[in-house]
Structures are given as structure tokens and as C-alpha cells.
Design a protein around this nucleic acid. Structure first.
Lengths: 160, 160
DNA sequence: CGCTAATATATCGCGCACGATGTAATCGTA
DNA sequence: TACGATTACATCGTGCGCGATATATTAGCG
């Protein structure tokens, strides 16, 4: 436990900085930024008929087709209990096909359909729109991403 | 369970950088950090019988009791369609009381119960645990928070 | 006073996210 | 070969988060 003797946060309301005034502010900042980014993505992805997690799954397949559910889950940091229904919705939308692997019947391989592969071109504009929406320089985004990734990596060790 | 494969020279797939390789990486970093932080919070808050959004709502009331649903929503960046059920669960848990204001019957004022106010002391250790879990210096957390807040603020203008 | 608009909250449906649990296939080891 | 352990997905229940919509109260305006 780190000494929390010095409380630097001023108790004068919370117009900015969120409802928590302590070190937990970082968590709220991440939490709020997550929702704010989702709100930016939503109208962009609505044209593609995707949600943000669905877009992530498609992006993983656009990078490398034929991944298993587990591989996609590791890429997206999601469990099968989240991925399975999500992939089923993508399959129902005709964007992917799921099939058990012949070599190992436990594994489900996910492949892009022609429609799903074609969607890549229409989605190509999305990252640029996001960059523009953030108003940040690409280099600054890169740095911020790296810091968040570092934060996440150190958090993962905290299990026990 | 959650595969935390060895960090470092892992040739398979994309252990770092996420599924999207472009500017959208920032979004995934925020997205993944959000979930990772939630996983750290969960065991801490489980002892208090709270989820993270519930903790945020309680923290807002610990800072200033008697806020309206709308005020809490603005502090947490949440709509009433999220807050109303959340507050009802807190009320069912005996932590708060909700009541229409006499001056304006449209407004619902949320007040801490004795049990809810008492929970503040037990929750006091949480921010310190979070700081320790991040492995960051307080100053660095502050800086990262500020950058994320700035990002969120610029995103909010992007509506149209 | 009556009527319309604005405000504050609530309800509904959908899609994540995850803990807990279930199931089938494969592996390990004797 | 037998059989328990492991692996890979799937299922179920709960709680967010939000778009769309509903309801009730208040404000504004002629």
C-alpha cells in the first residue's frame, strides 16, 4: 500500500476530473475516454453495419484471415463468452463463416466471406476519420497509445 | 484462463499493437486499458458489493450528497437510461434513497443512506490500491489522466 | 387560462463484457 | 487401451451503455 498522505485534489466540486478526486482519476479518465471514443466510432461504423467490437474482430481478420476464435480473443483481449455471440452476429450478417477445424474439432476457424472481405475497402477511411476527430498529431497518438499499452501490461501482472 | 502468453519474442499473431495497425490503435489501447482497469477494480469493489460504475456514483455522492440524477449523470458522463437502473440497484442494496424534489417534481434527488455513507470509509483504501496496481508514479498518472481528459474534450466537439 | 415546448426521468431493446458453468475433443500417462 | 486432465468453445445470468421512445412536470407565450 502506498502512503496516501498527501491529498492533492481540491474538494471544490468536480466540474472536470470526474467524480473521484484521487489517484482513481486515471481510471475515470480511461473510462470516460473509452465511451467518448465509442461515440465517435458509432456513426462511422453505422454505415458499415458494425459495432466497435465487431469492427475490431473484422480488422483482425482483414489482417489475417482464417484465425481461430481463441486467436481473435487474444488479439482483442476478449473471452469466448463475449466472442461467440459477437461472431455469430457477424455470421448472421453474412460477413464471416465459422467452421470447426478438421485437424482439431475443438477449434473453430473464422473466415471472411466475400462480403466481409469487401467491407475492408469501405472501412479503410475509418482510422483517418478517427485521427481527425481526436485532433492529435499521429506521433502524439502513438505516444499515448504506447503509454496506455504499458499501463495495461503492468496491470496484467497484478493478478494473484 | 486469460491467456497471458509470454511477453517479449512472441512470433505468433500480434501480441502488441492490437488488431488494428493504424491510427485506430489509440482507440484499441483505450478500449483494452479500460477493460484491464476494470479487472483490477473488480476484486477490490467486490468486497464493497459495488461495480465500478456503482462505485463512481457512490464516489460522486460521497463528495457531495443530495445530487440529482442529472448532476450525477453529468459527473459520470452517463445518460439516465444507464443511471436509473444503476441507482435503483444501489437503492435496493440500501446504500441510497431516491426521492422526487418537492420544488420540482421532475427532479429526483439521490441521498446516501447511513449504510451508504458508512461505506465511504471502507472504500478509502481503493484509490491507493489502484495506484499500486498501476505501478506508476502519482505524477505520471496525473499527466496521463490530463492527456486523456484533453483527448475526450476535443472529441466532444466532433459532433455536428 | 390554454396550449405548446422544454426539461427530467424512466422504460425498452440490443449488444457488449465477464463470472460461472457446461460440453465435446484431444492429450498424457500408465 | 483406458481414463483423468486439459483445451477450445459454447451457454447462462447479471450489469452496463446507449439509441429510441414514453411519461410527467414545469416554463413560456399569447
Amino acid at each position: 500500500m502506498v502512503a496516501k498522505s498527501g491529498r492533492g485534489a481540491e474538494p471544490t466540486g468536480e466540474p472536470e476530473g470526474g467524480p473521484v478526486g484521487d489517484y482513481a482519476r486515471l481510471c475515470f479518465s480511461v473510462y470516460a475516454a473509452h465511451h467518448a471514443l465509442n461515440r465517435v466510432y458509432q456513426p462511422l461504423l453505422e454505415d458499415l453495419g458494425l459495432t466497435y467490437p465487431q469492427y475490431l474482430a473484422m480488422a483482425a481478420l482483414w489482417t489475417r484471415d482464417g484465425q481461430t476464435v481463441g486467436e481473435i480473443g487474444r488479439a482483442l483481449q476478449l473471452e469466448t463468452n463475449t466472442l461467440t455471440p459477437l461472431l455469430k452476429r457477424l455470421e448472421a450478417a453474412g460477413l464471416i463463416a465459422r467452421a470447426r477445424a478438421k485437424s482439431d474439432e475443438r477449434v473453430v476457424v473464422v473466415r471472411l466471406s466475400a462480403k466481409g472481405a469487401a467491407l475492408k475497402a469501405r472501412a479503410a477511411a475509418v482510422p483517418g476519420c478517427i485521427l481527425a476527430a481526436t485532433g492529435l498529431e499521429a506521433a502524439e497518438m502513438e505516444r499515448l497509445s504506447a503509454e496506455l499499452d504499458r499501463l495495461r501490461a503492468s496491470l496484467k501482472v497484478e493478478d494473484a
